[in-house]
Design a protein around this nucleic acid. Structure first.
Lengths: 347, 347
DNA sequence: CGCAGTCATGACAGCGCAGTCATACACAGT
DNA sequence: ACTGTGTATGACTGCGCTGTCATGACTGCG
C-alpha cells in the first residue's frame, strides 16, 4: 500500500477514525459495533454519533480475518428458473437474511463441469460459515465432497446424496405428498394411476416416484410403466403423446405442474378430455396452476417454511459446533384439489 | 487469538505452510496463487504440489483485506419466484461466475422496510466491488441511495430509478417489444388493443405500458382504459372478469404471461373463445406458455444475454474506474406467435 | 570486461478489525 | 479500612494475505 500520510480524503473511514472523533479507543468502537456488553450508554451514544457523522461501515474483510468467521452462508442451486427451485432459493434468501448472515450463491447446471462438488468448493474458497444445497441431484462425484468440507451443510431436499461430517437435511417430504396425490386419484375410483416422473438424477424426482409406488402398493395395484420427463412442459407433452397409445389410461400423476400442463395439452389435442376421460394431478402449485384449463389439482409445498426450518438447523450447527443437531419439524404440505382430477369415466 | 504454539492440527493451512513445504517464501506462494508473472516453472510446480498436498485454500478475507477488493458482486432482487425475475437472476449468476467474481444476493420484497436502498446498503456493508439491481421498482427513498454508493452499479431493467455516480443500465427494452406485441395485434386487424398492465411501481411494467401507448398512437388509435394487475394469474383473472363487461374487446396485450393466462381463464369461463372472439398476447414466454390452451402468443426475452452484456459493462467499470462506460448492445428480443392471437371476429 | 536491463525471489510492512489481558474505578460485604 | 466482585475502558497484538522495495542471478552488448 502506498504509505500516504494522512490518507486521501476519499478513503473510507475506519474504526480508529471513529474512535478518535468519539474520544475513545478503537477497541471500544469495535465493542459498540458488535453490541458487546460493558459499554456505558454515554460512550455508546458518542460512538454511534461519530460513526454516523463519518459514514463509517465496518470492514467486513477485516472482521472476517480477525474473527475467523465470515457471517455468510453459501447456497448451491441448480440454476434453473423452475418454480420449485426458484421459490426455494427465495425462501432461503429470506431465511438467511433473517438470521443475520449474508448469502452467497453458486449455481451448478446439470452436467456442468464440476457439478455440486465444484460449487461447494468455490463456496469454501469464499470462506462461508455454512452451506445450503438446494435440490441435490445425483452426480458421480457427489460422494467425494465430504472430505474437504469443514462447515455444516444443509441439504434441502431429500435424501442427502452424500454423507458429510456436518450434514443436516430438512424439509421436502415429497414422497409422502406424492403418495397422497396418487391416493387421491385411487380414491376417486381409478383402477390405477400412471406416473410421469421427473428426471431421475434429481432426488426429489426419485422421491415422488417412490411415493407413487408406495400408494399403488398399499392399494394392491399393479404398477404401470413409468414415463420420464425433464420437468419441462415440452417433455410432458411428449410423454402425453405416448400415453395416448394406451386407451386404458384414466389417471396420471405428473411429478411437476409444467409437465402436467404439457401432458394435458397432448391429451386435449388428441380429443381426450381432462378430467372426463383422463384425470391429471401435478406437483408444486405453480402460480398459473389454478388458471389453466382445466385448473390443475396439485401439491403445494411451503417453500418458505422449509427454508426457514432448515436454516434454523444450519445456524444452530454453525454456532454450536459440538451440539447435537436440532430435531426437524415436518412442514405442512397440502394437496390442492381442482378440476383436473375427477372420477374415471364409466366403462 | 490464543497464542497456541504450533497451531492445532485441525487448523487450515496458510500460505506460509505451503511456502515452507515448497521451500520458498510466502510471497512466492502468493505469486503462484495469483498467477503473477516472474515465477519459474519449477517453483510454480513445487508450490502447486505443496498446496495440493496440504489442501491449501487461500483465505479470502485476508486477501480482501490486503488488496482492498473482494472480487464479489452483489445483486438486489425483488425476491419473487416470478419467471422473469428468477430467470434474470439465474442469468446474472452465470454471468458473474464467468467473470470470476463471487455473487452475493439480497432480496427486497415489495414494501419491505428498507427497500432497494436498504438492500444496497447491506451489500455495501459486505464490501462488494459492484452491484446489480435486477428489475428496479419505484420507491420513495430510491433517490437518496446515490450518496453513499462508491462502487459501480448496473441496473438491469429500464429506466434507472435513480442516478448514482457509477450507474450503467443494460438490457430489457421492454417498451419496444410491448410495442411490437401491440402492433402484431393491430396488424391482425383489431381496431384497438386493450392493455392489462403490471404493477406500475415496477419500471418494467411502466415500460410495457409505454410501448403499448406508442403503438396505439403510431396507428392513430384511441387508447382504451388500462387494467392493472400485480403480475399474478389471479389478478389477470380479476381483470378479465371486468373486461367482460365490454363486449367490444377483441384484443388484449397482457404485461406478462401469468396475467394473460388468468385473463384467458376468465374469458373462457364466460364463454368467450380465445382467439376466435378475443386475442390475447402475453410477455415473458414462460415455459408453459406453449402448452396452455390455447398456446400463448408472447414475447421472449434473452435473459442470459442481457445479464451477460450487463455484467461485461459492470466488470469493465469495476476494473477501469476512470474509463468511459462501454457501449450497450441491444439483446435480441423475439415475438413468439402462437394460437392465442388471431384476426378479430367478423362484425 | 563492465554496465544496463530483465527475470526471479525474498524481506518487510500493514490492511482494519477482534481477542486477550491489564487496568481503573465503583460498590458490596465483612 | 480491606478485600472481593462486577463494570468499563484501553494497549497491544496478530489474523493471512498483498504491495512495495531490495536483492541477486542472469542476459546481451558495446
Amino acid at each position: 500500500m502506498t504509505p500516504v500520510a494522512g490518507r486521501g480524503a476519499g478513503a473510507a473511514p475506519r474504526s480508529v477514525d471513529v474512535a478518535r472523533l468519539a474520544g475513545v479507543s478503537q477497541k471500544t468502537v469495535s465493542r459498540v459495533m458488535n453490541d458487546e456488553p460493558y459499554v456505558s450508554a454515554d460512550v455508546r451514544r458518542r460512538v454511534l454519533a461519530a460513526a454516523e457523522e463519518l459514514g463509517y461501515r465496518s470492514n467486513n474483510a477485516a472482521r472476517a480475518l480477525a474473527s475467523g468467521r465470515t457471517r455468510s452462508i453459501g447456497v448451491v442451486t441448480l440454476g434453473t428458473a423452475l418454480y420449485g427451485p426458484a421459490s426455494l432459493l427465495m425462501g432461503v434468501e429470506r431465511a438467511v437474511r433473517d438470521t443475520g448472515y449474508a448469502l452467497r450463491v453458486v449455481n451448478t447446471m446439470e452436467g456442468e463441469r464440476a457439478g455440486i462438488a465444484g460449487a461447494v468448493d468455490s463456496l469454501l474458497d469464499q470462506g462461508v460459515d455454512g452451506i445450503v444445497i438446494s435440490e441435490p441431484i445425483d452426480e458421480a462425484d457427489g460422494a467425494d465432497l465430504s472430505a474437504r468440507v469443514d462447515v455444516p451443510v444443509l441439504v434441502l431436499g431429500a435424501p442427502p446424496p452424500f454423507a458429510a461430517p456436518h450434514v443436516v437435511t430438512a424439509g421436502i417430504v415429497s414422497s409422502q405428498m406424492a403418495r397422497a396425490a396418487t391416493e387421491h386419484l385411487l380414491e376417486l375410483g381409478h383402477t390405477t394411476v400412471h406416473h410421469l416422473a421427473g428426471p431421475q438424477r434429481w432426488y426429489s424426482a426419485r422421491d415422488r416416484l417412490d411415493g407413487w409406488r408406495e400408494a399403488l402398493a398399499a392399494h394392491g395395484r399393479a404398477e404401470p410403466p413409468v414415463a420420464e420427463g425433464d420437468w419441462s412442459a415440452a417433455s410432458g407433452y411428449a410423454a402425453g403423446r405416448e400415453l395416448l397409445a394406451d386407451p386404458g389410461v384414466t389417471a396420471v400423476f405428473a411429478a411437476n405442474d409444467d409437465m402436467a400442463i404439457g401432458l394435458i395439452r397432448a391429451l386435449t389435442e388428441a380429443g381426450r378430455r381432462v378430467p372426463e376421460d383422463v384425470s391429471v394431478v401435478g406437483f408444486d402449485d405453480i402460480p398459473v396452476a389454478a388458471y389453466v384449463t382445466p385448473p390443475l389439482t396439485t401439491v403445494r409445498q411451503p417453500f418458505d417454511a422449509m427454508a426457514q426450518d432448515g436454516l434454523k438447523l444450519l445456524v444452530h450447527a454453525i454456532e454450536n459446533p459440538q451440539a447435537d443437531p436440532l430435531p426437524m419439524t415436518d412442514p405442512p404440505v397440502e394437496l390442492v384439489v381442482r378440476a383436473s382430477s375427477a372420477p374415471p369415466p364409466p366403462r
